[in-house]
Amino acid sequence: MAEEFTDEELTLPSCKYEYLDHTADVQLHAWGDSLKEAYEQCGIAMFGYMTELDSVEIRQSAEIEATGHDLESLLFHFLDELLFLFSCEPFLICSKVTITEFLTEGEEMRIRCKCYGEEFTIGKHPQGTEVKAITYSAMQIVKDTQKNKFEVFVIIDI
């Protein structure tokens, strides 16, 4: 039975990410008006590197949870959970991720996230580059207090 989605769930966010060259890998650069939005955009950027996101329809959803002891480990585990979601059968490719809980205070930081997309299908979804792993290498989380903007930089192993 197909899932039913609200108009809000079907509305895709604007693109606030880019890909930066890095020797043998790629660096995801994402930003937002909040740290939560920057994390969401980074997750979408990773899926966008795997396929053209405009080919991904919202037909199903999944929920993930990630924890960390600081903002960097939280980002790492969040992206790692998204990558795991894609790596399991059936391969879920997401065109939207919505963080529903974003706890960044205390000893254990936590993210709960709802992911929207569909099963990856060769022929329907152009094959991009396989993401092998998330890395801590050169990971940065930047808050620009003057512009009230947050940026994240993450190198993914391809």
Rank of each mutant, 00 (worst) to 15 (best):
A133L: 07
I141D: 11
C88S: 11
L53M: 05
C42Y: 00
G32Y: 07
H77P: 01
E52V: 10
M1W: 10
E89H: 10
A38R: 07
G106M: 01
T98L: 15
S137E: 12
E108D: 13
D54P: 06
E81L: 03
L71W: 05
T129K: 11
A133T: 08
P13M: 03
D25H: 05
E65W: 01
E3P: 05
A45I: 07
T67A: 10
V56S: 00
A2Y: 11
I156A: 03
F153W: 10
H77Y: 14
M46I: 06
S55W: 02
T51I: 00
L12V: 00
K143L: 13
T11L: 04
H22F: 13
Q146A: 15
E105R: 09
E52G: 07
A62F: 02
A45Y: 00
S137Y: 14
F91A: 15
F78D: 12
F47T: 06
L12C: 04
K132H: 06
D21G: 15
K149R: 14
S95H: 02
Q140K: 13
Q27Y: 03
I99K: 05
Y49E: 02
C115P: 03
T23C: 02
V142D: 08
I122C: 08
P126C: 00
F153D: 08
K132L: 07
H77A: 14
A62Q: 11
P13Q: 06
L79F: 05
E151Q: 13
E40W: 01
I156T: 11
E63P: 03
E118Q: 12
V154P: 00
M139I: 06
M1D: 14
I58N: 00
S61Y: 12
I134H: 03
A62G: 12
I156W: 01
H29A: 13
T6F: 04
L10E: 01
T98I: 13
I111E: 02
A30H: 09
Y19P: 01
A138V: 14
E89F: 13
E107P: 11
T98C: 14
I156R: 08
E119G: 00
E40G: 04
S95F: 03
L75D: 11
H22V: 08
D7Q: 15
P90I: 09
